[in-house]
Design a protein around this nucleic acid. Structure first.
Lengths: 356, 356
DNA sequence: TTGAAAGCGCTAACAT
DNA sequence: ATGTTAGCGCTTTCAA
């Protein structure tokens, strides 16, 4: 690889003149000098060594991106959007790491990013506790956190879909179709976003006048590979639901995300229950393949491209001014009506038999 | 951030002694000196600046990973496995870029990796032509290419599922169930892997004595965002298939990947055709969610974890010895039988009506 | 308008 | 066993 020295030698000038053209300080250069340097650069196919530049200036050319796992298509998509925004807005490349929702790993990745001089990071959903972030911020990191809200007054920005609204939309949609017995299906492992989804679900159910007929079904899932366990967990929970007496079984189920909804639908089908005839299902995330599920999944879409773009911008702003107070930005979700929701089955319980 | 100087000062030694402990040259150190340095490092929370180290040694701490798009869960999963292997085997982090199957982008990413001093790259499926790789190799990159085979004698390694076998497995499975009219559904945009899948399909069909009853249906798809267009293309192709007279319609369809299969199944369903009663479908990749499709998709699984591990190892080997000749490694796929394949429908065409 | 030189944090050859 | 020093490729201040 050619160095700035080689260019200077070939052009017959000093390296500082070359540096000047590299950094666009053209006003300080003679026309002829400029031309010669340009020519030399082209001839050698020279590209400045970004590592040397970073050592000197302290500015990394990388944006750190931490997601639970790109094997979860939701984060795979988010990663694509972040990469595009980072490139377009800041000409930054992405250093991607999968945390598998593990605090230890998260912390050690932060350490490493610091050692690499990467100061800007987008962090998607770690467990609820955020204290390890504070430490990173203290050490100079600009972090914006996805999928959580900042209860603590901190110097990290929070960007998230408005999950209170998201679950409310799901509940209202179901209630609008006539459902009264609702449940929210969620993994046992709590994350900030899942907590918010619970709150939204409960609040909306309450507002709709549903009390004991709206509940939460927590299913063990742990933090497995790429959240694929979430589909498993959804599938497994179907047996429990099918085992309930029909008169007490929920007729409408909201899941915390599409992977779970897909698993749930398969499990329900396996258990002999039809979606949406016997049970209606609403997912969340609007994964590409949910449009092709059978039945097509009604779900709540998240504006992930817009959020990615906003997060990249916020990282840049915070990098420019680390004293910025933590900001909170919620993005509005959208209900996507497809085929997994129908009115609840007509009551055919024995108690009503004679009244007809 | 503390520097090696700070550590040396605090420990009251020279920086080279500190450097020696950092690099494990403990034999050159006095016990007491070593202890003091260790203590200083801990006290300061010192971590060596990897950028400075790289500038000095030339060894990057990053592995470049280029995929079409992590929005395609296949590559999202592959990326996870690569990251894990890179960390475990070489203690390398991953610089991830999405090429969107665009040569221009691929080339410019290579340029940038070079400028960042990243010499090891895993490249997943670019278009068939590979000439831009040669240029990168010439400039010192160690690249291993996924999903293609190296027709050219080059200095890049090739790792791929054996697609000839993969499509053959699919064909034989279908033939074994009694199918005679088969088609392979593939996008118009050709990639090395898709070419291989065609060959395998055709060869297996021929070997099974199928001639004109096995054909290839090419559907326009382009190179859209995250291959989500592949599901669309699969969906769209269903209409064409449904429009065929039943006596000429394929009873068994192999798709080049699961996204297409999922789209196809949805489209078939929409067109009033049942899978697997009217049409059987075999996908490829074994995406997590295919197990939860309705019906569950029979597909050909690819050992992506093993391949990821092999690729990381090969990059390291090639980095160590750039003169290595290009190697070719094919991995055996596995057929996963699920619910999307059944015997073909019994013939009920008018011509046979009277023969019963 | 151009060039010389210091220095970013580290490694390693060399000297002591 | 420990320290001194050159230098990786670049940016930038300062002098000419």
């Amino acid at each position: 690889m050619a160095t700035i020295q080689d260019v200077a030698a070939l052009a017959g000038v000093s390296i500082s003149s070359v540096s000047n053209v590299l950094n666009g300080r053209t006003e300080k250069l003679g026309r002829e000098t400029y031309r010669r340097i340009e020519a030399a650069i082209r001839e050698l196919g020279y590209r400045p060594n970004l590592v040397a530049r970073q050592l000197k200036t302290g500015n990394a050319h990388l944006l750190g991106v931490l997601v639970p796992s790109t094997a979860n298509p939701m984060f795979g998509e988010l990663a694509v959007h972040i990469e595009a925004a980072a490139k377009e807005q800041q000409n930054l490349r992405v250093l991607l790491a999968n945390s598998h929702r593990d605090r230890e790993q998260e912390s050690s990745i932060f350490e490493e990013l610091l050692a690499l001089g990467v100061h800007g990071v987008i962090l998607a959903s770690s467990p609820t506790d955020e204290s390890h972030l504070e430490a990173a911020v203290e050490r100079g990191m600009a972090v914006v956190s996805y999928d959580r809200d900042g209860d603590h007054a901190s110097r990290v920005d929070h960007v998230s879909p408005d999950y209170m609204i998201a679950t409310r939309m799901a509940v209202e949609h179901l209630v609008g179709k006539g459902h009264r017995r609702l449940t929210l299906l969620t993994p046992d492992l709590k994350t900030a976003s899942r907590v918010r989804k619970r709150e939204g679900f409960l609040a909306a159910a309450h507002a709709a006048g549903l009390g004991a007929t709206a509940n939460i079904l927590e299913v063990i899932a742990g933090a497995g590979h790429g959240d694929s366990n979430l589909a498993d967990a959804g599938y497994a929970s179907a047996a429990r639901i099918a085992a309930m007496p029909a008169s007490r079984r929920p007729t409408g189920i909201v899941t915390i995300n599409d992977m779970m909804a897909l698993g749930l639908m398969a499990g329900l089908h396996h258990a002999g229950l039809s979606v949406p005839r016997d049970v209606s299902v609403v997912g969340m995330d609007n994964l590409v393949m949910t449009a092709y599920a059978n039945p097509p999944l009604t779900t709540v879409a998240i504006p992930s491209r817009e959020m990615a773009s906003a997060m990249v911008r916020m990282v840049a702003e915070r990098l420019a001014d680390p004293t910025l107070a933590g900001r909170e930005t919620l993005f509005a979700p959208t209900l996507i009506e497809r085929g997994s929701v129908a009115p609840p089955p007509a009551r055919t319980s024995p108690s009503r038999k004679g009244t007809a």
